[in-house]
Structure formats: structure tokens, C-alpha cells
Nucleic acid binder design. Structure first.
Lengths: 194, 194
DNA sequence: CGTCTATTTGAATGTACTCAAAAGCGGTGG
DNA sequence: CCACCGCTTTTGAGTACATTCAAATAGACG
């Protein structure tokens, strides 16, 4: 089961909580263990949880009508993930989220999220900062998508997430980069040759 | 000069402010008018301001080493823009921001932003929501970049920002979509033919 | 060991880019 | 008011980047 200390220390990097505030946070979280390949959120259904990973790795992806999976993000330890759009508006999600490895998470329902922010307003700041940082990351990724070649994106990816490549199947990395698995394989061969 | 009412009503869509809180907000904002083509933030220098547009349109873009401009976002009335990464960390920005049309803005310095959040903690919630929504939008854009053809991205763009096309030069739309102006022109011809 | 899936490889194709040139368009000055 | 200039958009030919399809190879797991 996921360890509360890991989420607490992640939160306390940005805001300091009293014991009772920490207790409120703890009480609203649900801990869960996931096996590799287990689905935690399914496209088509409203997103039920905002998810914090304490160990392992999740991927959030969209499946096109032709059945091709496109990875929006990988979430490793100390990252939040989920489909915020669907979560807030109760609309069917266009993303699924699946464990890539055995993974420990904390789940926050929408009700829990709202109650948490109401009872511990400090956390507005925490999430403001979290979202602000994600926004910066996403901006960089958009720039890369519109201005880099696939090879450059792959190199940037390796630099940014050096550990991820070790346990994420290549086809999902390809999908994250926006290329076919075949082409990523060719890119890798080219880079090896150097 | 930009009208304070427009930013106040944008804020009050998410949080209600007392008169004195509104006054604090007002006091920390600097109003400014920009001519079409005027630069408000320059890549290479730390980003000085977080910017709210009340009228007109800004574009935030990165210029590659070969001199090609890549548009990260357009900001029309009631949008915030700026390079949050550079803004918070005082690092040189990799983005420039320029007025596409005559534009009215409010500027918030980093000091002002921090003081604002300290004196009006309610606004943590406002910015949490703003960033959360932007994150959803950015996520969608990433998905499109990695899974749509240029033609599909263009159609999605027209659908999402129908008014923008009327006054944004095509080459910037091309740049936003991640294609060359020549190719966007060819896409348009194809679509006309239908 | 056999089966299933992931990765590699190659050939043919398609999507998007580069370069060069022509056409369109808006503003400015005579 | 028209002519000219600079910039944007269009068009076309040739090229490069990335995909599709098919098949071979390699790995993982029961």
C-alpha cells in the first residue's frame, strides 16, 4: 500500500501543513496497489480520480478510432496524473490510465478534492504551484512537437527522463513522441551508429 | 488604457472579491497599451511580467537558432500569457511575446504576483483554476500534435478559434500548427476544393 | 519448449519541407 | 490617385522525413 509519508513530503515541498491538516489530507485519500498493465481509468467513462503515484509508473493515453494509442504522459513517483477535464466536468474521459509497472497510488475523488481544498485552503497554493509547473512542462513539450524532428524529440526525452527508458516498452515511448514504433527503432539504429 | 472591470469580472467568474481585495489587485497591476507588432517580452531576458489581455491579441513564440518562429500560444481578451518558467525562476526566457494587433494589457511583476497571493489568498484558488484549465487545453494540443495530421490540426484550430483567423496572419497560424506557411497554404487550397 | 508480443529490417508510399519564383495586398510617397 | 515597395501568400518541382505493410528476429512468460 502506498505510503502517506511520500505524498506528505511532496506536498510539504511547497506548503507546510499542521498535523490536523495532514490528517484531513490522509483521511480523504484512498490508497491502492496496481499490477503492471492494470487499468485505473477508462476512456469513455467520467474520470473518477485524481491520482498521485508514490511508486512505479502510470501512463495516460488516448486511443484513436483506428485503435492506435497515443501517450499524453507518463507519471512516475511523486507525480499527479489523471484527466482533469473529465474529472471536473463529469464528462466522459478521452484518456485511459494504465500501470506500466507494479504501482502504488493515492486516489482522490472529485468530492474529496473539493472537500480537501475547502478544509485545507493552503492546498490551493500547492495545486496552483503543481499545475503551474506542469504547464511549463507541457509548454516545452508543445514547442518540441511543433519544432523538433522525431530524432530531436527522442534525444530530449532521453535527457529529461533517463530512467524511464529502462522499463517503459519502446512502443509507448514512440507513442509519447508521436512516431510509429518502427520509426523509433530506425532512429535508435541511427543513433547507435554514432 | 486597459479597463480594470474586465480583469475583475474574469477573476470573479471563479472567486468573489471584497472591495478592498479588488483594490489590492488593482494597485498591483500596471496598465499598458501596445501597438500592433510591439514586443512586450523578449527571449533571452528574464520574463518580467505575467500578462493579462483585455483587448486585442498577443502571441508568445520561440525563435529557433535558424530564425524560425514557433508560436506557443495566442492570447486574446481575458487570457493570461507569459513565460511562467522564466518568470518564477528569473532565468532567461526562451519565448518572446508580441502584439499581433493593437492591444490593451495588465502587467503583473513577480513581486506583484507574490504580494498579491499573500495579501489576497483567495487568488491562489483563482490561479489554481486558471492553470488547471490551461493544463487541460495544453494536453489537448499535445494530443493533436502527436496524433493528428496538419490538416486535422488546422480544422481543429478553426473550430476552436473561429475568430482568430480573421486577423492573425496565416504564417503565424502555420507556425502555431507546426507546419510551414507554404504547406498551410496548400492545405487551405485542398479544403477549399471541397 | 511453444506462444505471444515487442522490436527490427526493408521496400514502397505519403506527408510535409525546401527552394525558387510568381502573384496578391497594403501602405507610403510622389 | 496611382505607382512602387516590402511583405505575405500561392504555386510548383524536387527532396527529406515519417508511415504503412510485410516479414524476420528477438524476448518474455507460462
Amino acid at each position: 500500500m502506498a505510503d502517506f509519508k511520500s505524498i506528505l513530503s511532496a506536498v510539504e515541498k511547497h506548503v507546510r501543513l499542521t498535523d490536523s491538516e495532514a490528517a484531513v489530507l490522509h483521511s480523504l485519500l484512498e490508497s491502492r496497489s496496481l499490477r503492471a498493465n492494470e487499468l485505473i481509468a477508462n476512456a469513455g467513462e467520467p474520470s473518477q480520480h485524481f491520482i498521485f503515484v508514490t511508486m512505479g509508473c502510470l501512463m495516460t493515453y488516448h486511443t484513436s478510432t483506428e485503435g492506435v494509442e497515443h501517450v499524453l504522459q507518463f507519471a512516475t513517483a511523486n507525480w499527479w496524473t489523471g484527466d482533469l477535464g473529465s474529472f471536473e466536468k463529469h464528462t466522459p474521459s478521452c484518456y485511459s490510465t494504465r500501470a506500466i509497472a507494479d504501482t502504488e497510488v493515492f486516489l482522490l475523488t472529485l468530492k474529496g478534492f473539493e472537500e480537501l481544498l475547502e478544509r485545507v485552503p493552503k492546498l490551493e497554493k500547492y495545486f496552483r504551484i503543481i499545475f503551474q509547473n506542469s504547464l511549463i512542462t507541457h509548454g516545452g513539450r508543445i514547442m518540441q512537437a511543433i519544432s523538433y524532428t522525431a530524432e530531436e524529440r527522442y534525444e530530449a526525452f532521453r535527457e529529461k527522463y533517463p530512467t524511464l527508458e529502462q522499463f517503459v516498452p519502446q512502443k509507448y515511448i514512440a507513442s509519447y513522441l508521436g512516431v510509429t514504433p518502427e520509426f523509433l527503432s530506425k532512429i535508435r539504429r541511427r543513433l547507435m551508429a554514432k
